[in-house]
Structure formats: C-alpha cells, structure tokens
Design a protein around this nucleic acid. Structure first.
Length: 569
DNA sequence: GCCGTTTTCGGCCCGACTGTTTTCAGTCG
C-alpha cells in the first residue's frame, strides 16, 4: 500500500472526528500524522514488514503506529469504519463548501438530519437553516452559491498558470503611486507543484487604492471579502486571491507569514515562544516591543536561524540546515548547460532538429540531445530501429553544420509491459544518450513495475530513467514504485534520474529527488520540449530541484557534456 | 493524539474577516 493511501485513512478520520466535535488537538494529531506519511520517503509497507519502529516518524506515536500496522495488514481501519457508520459520506462532502466548516456541518447533520449537498441546498432555499440559532440569511446564500460553484472553487491549479496570474497582478499593483513593495507569497512563492489560491502582499501608504485597483483589475471576477488590511477576490478562472496590506516595518514578518507553509510557520512561532517572543504577521515582539519585522532575514536571525529560501519552507529539512547555518546554495536556472530530452518532427515534435538546436542556442545552452519516441508509442509516430539509425545519421549531419551547440543522438525508449525494452541493445549502443521510460501499463502491480524498471536500470546502454513515475499532476497518479529499492538500484548501476520540467509532470517529485540526492544519484533536468516554446518550462524543473534542496553540483546537466559523460555508465 | 535540556502532565500558532450576535464562534490561511 502506498503512503498516500494510508495518509488518506487518517485525513478521512480527522474530517469525521471534527464534524463529530472531537478534541481539536486530537484531530490535528491525525492530520499531522497524515502529512508526515505523505511527505516521507520511507516505505511504510516495508517498515511494517521489517518491524521497524514507526514512532520514529514525526507526529507518529504509539496509537498512530498501531493504526498504520492495522491498515497495512488488513487494508482497513476499524475506527474509521465505525465513524463512517455514524456520519454519512454526504455530510463530509459538505466541508467542501467555502465558508462552511466542521462545526456548521455537524449542526446541520445533528439538528436537521441533513445528509447530502442536495438536502442542504434544499434546506437553504426553503429558509430552514436560518431558523437555527447562530445562522441567518447570509449563511444560506453562501451555501447555495457555494454548492453551485463547487467545481470551480475546489480546483487546484498548475503552478505555471497560477504564477502567471499572480505575477501580472503583482506587477500592476506595483505601478500604483501608494504601493511601495509588492510580492507574491504563499505556495506560489514556495513553487509548489499546484496552487490552491494566491497571496499577494503589499506595503502601501493607502490600502484603499490597492484594494480598489485589485477589485477593478481585468483578471478579477468578484470581491469576496474586504476589510482594512485584507481583501479576497475571485479571478475569472476561478482561482481566489488574497491581498494583504501591511506597514513597511512589518514587511519581512508578513512575507514570512504569508509565504508559509503553515507547518513552517508553526515551527517558527514555537521557536519564538521558546525565546519569550511572539511572532505574527506584524513582526517579532518582546512583550509589546518590535524586535524584528522589516526583512525576512532579521526575523530568521532573531530566531537563531539562517534565512531559508521559500522553496524549502515545508518543515522537512530546513530547520536543521538553518540552525547549523548550512542552507545550501540552491540551483539556479542559469546553471543549466544542456537539455537532454526533446522531440522533433521525426516523432511527435513540431520543429526540426536544426530548429530545436537554434532555439536552444538562443537560450545559452551548450548541448542538447534529440530524444524522439520509440516505436511502441504509435500515436506519436515512434521510431523503430531502422528509422532511428537514419534519424541519428541526420542528427550527425545537422550537428556538423551547426556551430555553437552540440547536438547529441538520443532516444526516449519505452520499457514495454512485458519488461523488455522497445529497441535492441544493438541499436541503443550506437547512440550518445538513451532515456528509458514507462508510458504504458502504469497501473500494473508493484512487482511487475519494479521488474520493468530493473530491466532498464541494469541495461548497460540506458543512461537515465525519464519521468520515473509517469504521473500527470492533477490527472493521474504515477506507477506504484518501491522508491527505496528503485533509488538504490539506480545508485548501484550508475543510472541517472530525471526531473522532467513540464509543469504537469515534475517527475521526480521533490521528496524523491531529495532522496536521490542523498544516495548521490545525479539528477538531470530536462524540458521534454515538443517545440522551441517547450523549453520555457525549464524554470519549473529548477523550482522542483530547489524544493528538493539540490545544488548545482547535484544536477548533472549543469556540467559540460564532456564532464557529464564522466557521470554516466 | 503527540510530545518533552522545566518529560509522563498540560500544553498544543495566531490574527483577519464574516455573520451572527451585543461579545463571540466559526472559518480560513
């Protein structure tokens, strides 16, 4: 069973307990535990088999450890089943309505026997909810509108899309006379793979001007809430954006606060408490006196920490590093010297070899590998051995004619469902760069997937596994891989791993990339471009690498091709 | 339910905004 599936048991139980009115710290304990399971690279199924001590994981005590064992051994959790009997699934679903939380949902269920979104909407329309103590007409309207727009408001967005809107609004706010500083904060600034909503922070002499401008902005659909320092709006694409206006002396503290993550902030506040200080979005205070707040650096410094790059603020590794003043110098976009995964018109790309090479040269790259699909990918016009060898001759010819960039003969070779490679070794050995990938049969059981991956890892002519899990963010999960075993095998056989930079892949994830780094596996950041515009996703690969704590040295294609070859088998 | 250089009890992050209230609970981030 996957860690995320086990985490889902705890999150489900937390929802139910919350509606049931359980102790909120107990609820939090389940959510914290779930979060640990989601972000750990440790294979829980394996740990249970090996009888490892689960309580060594953060937020996992005796009780949760036992529940994890139960889940893995039986595939279910009695306490969850019991709660599900008590509270129907439709009740939990009501939590998805914006502005409606567990307390209200609990009241609807207990006092009015409402068990589904449909029943709730009906009750709101009949005015039955307003009869309850503490409820009124506004709440009914919130519920009706919330249910009608549920599909819109519960969406998450690719970082690429969200960041585009946030940057545009930030830049427009910065043009206002009263606005001094403006920054996009939140998960967007942390460069998370997906973004639920946007946060923009400004310092301004006049908060009304910024709020009026935002309300009138072309991207904005409607204002949801507005106070003196905070305004929430919904953009036309459905994403919601919070604007916060803070005084200049609080800008750094506010930036820390609104960048998050929530978990990172909790640790910071605890550190503040331990030092008899109080941290909020207005600054770090000793009693009533402001100790730090103008810059992020001084806030961290007063908490005995080095400044933490936003990408690392997930309460995973950053506090140990910041405390020891060992925050690594993270990878920068300019460090990347080559791109080793792309397509041309030979398979499903839009541009020629020369076209891709010219565009790469414009971006300052020193080398590229042309890696069209192999024959299994029929719909992409994948190449068989004969066509590939001809294609490689053509690449050699174009390379001869092209100055200023080296063009390498590559292939994106499928690992077939039966565990063999789509092309013969006899062909593969003639190329410069061989990527092996899973495209089909991603739903096969773990053992079968692992066998396929091992074929590729141990093949002497396969240099790298591309988009290792095959996931598509917001669309489908990746293959069920035993990551520990997979990474160890790659380390043992000198097989490199990709961070595919496309914003819908970002595969490896940051957790897996960090684990690969720990094993000394060189990471290659590639765009998988199907046209020259496709190169533009490179920055997202770099963000992902930064979130994994990767430096220039950890990434193979920051080197020259000659240097990089020394890392390859 | 978790956790511990004040350890097995008593804490557990903090503030803005809304809607419903006359002082606050619920929700959200």
């Amino acid at each position: 069973m996957r860690n995320s599936e086990i985490a889902a048991f705890f999150n489900a139980l937390a929802d139910l307990l919350e509606i049931d009115g359980a102790n909120s710290f107990r609820v939090r304990a389940y959510r914290n535990g779930a979060r640990t399971l989601d972000s750990t690279n440790a294979d829980l199924t394996r740990m249970v088999e090996d009888e490892d001590n689960l309580t060594e994981l953060d937020g996992i005590g005796k009780d949760l450890a036992e529940k994890i064992i139960t889940i893995i051994q039986t595939g279910s959790l009695p306490q969850l089943l019991e709660m599900q009997k008590k509270i129907p699934a439709g009740v939990v679903e009501m939590l998805r309505i914006p502005g409606i939380g567990p307390k209200k949902v609990g009241t609807f269920y207990r006092d009015l026997k409402i068990e589904s979104l449909e029943q709730l909407k009906e009750a709101a329309e009949k005015g039955e909810l307003a009869k309850l103590k503490g409820f009124g007409k506004k709440t009914e309207e919130t519920i009706i509108e919330g249910i009608d727009t549920l599909d819109l408001t519960n969406r998450r967005f690719y970082l690429a899309e969200a960041k585009g809107y946030a940057d545009e609004i930030r830049n427009d706010l910065l043009k206002l006379e009263s606005v001094k500083q403006a920054e996009v904060a939140g998960s967007c600034r942390r460069r998370k793979e997906t973004v639920g909503d946007l946060d923009v922070l400004v310092t301004a002499s006049d908060s009304a001007e910024a709020m009026d401008a935002l309300a009138a902005h072309a991207l904005v659909d409607k204002v949801i809430a507005r106070g003196d320092t905070k305004q929430r709006v919904r953009l036309k694409n459905g994403i919601e954006l919070d604007l916060r206006v803070v005084p200049e002396e609080s800008y750094g503290a506010a930036l820390v606060y609104f960048t998050g993550s929530k978990e990172h902030n909790i640790v910071l506040r605890r550190r503040a408490q331990e030092r008899d200080l109080k941290l909020n979005e207005y600054g770090l205070f000793k009693e009533e006196k402001l100790v730090a707040g103008k810059t992020e650096e001084e806030v961290y410094q007063k908490l005995d920490l080095a400044w933490v790059p936003p990408e690392l603020r997930e309460s995973r590794i950053e506090f140990d590093l910041a405390e020891a003043d060992k925050i690594p110098e993270l990878l920068e976009l300019e460090d990347i010297k080559g791109d080793l995964h792309m397509h041309t018109t030979a398979s499903d790309g839009k541009a020629s070899i020369a076209g891709m090479a010219e565009a790469a040269k414009q971006q300052g790259l020193k080398y590229i590998a042309i890696t069209d699909h192999s024959k299994r990918v029929m719909m992409a016009n994948g190449l068989d051995g004969k066509r590939l060898l001809k294609h490689w001759e053509e690449i050699d010819r174009v390379n001869e004619e092209t100055k200023g960039i080296e063009i390498l003969k590559g292939i994106e070779c499928d690992i077939l469902e039966d565990g063999t490679l789509d092309l013969e070794d006899e062909v593969l050995k003639q190329g410069d760069w061989v990527i092996a990938v899973l495209h089909y049969g991603l739903k096969q059981p773990r053992a079968k997937i692992m066998k396929r991956l091992m074929t590729a890892i141990t093949n002497p002519y396969v240099h790298m596994i591309g988009h290792p899990t095959g996931r598509l963010i917001l669309k489908r999960p990746g293959a069920d891989i035993d990551m520990d075993e997979f990474l160890k095998a790659c380390a043992d056989h000198g097989t490199l791993l990709e961070i595919n930079a496309h914003f819908s892949r970002l595969d490896l994830s940051e957790v897996h990339a960090a684990a690969a780094k720990d094993l000394g596996i060189p990471i290659v950041i590639n765009t998988d471009a199907h046209s020259p515009e496709g190169y533009n996703v490179r920055q997202y690969g770099v963000y992902q690498a930064r979130r994994a704590g990767l430096t220039k040295a950890d990434v193979a294609n920051t080197r020259s091709w000659a240097q990089m070859k020394k890392l390859m088998k």
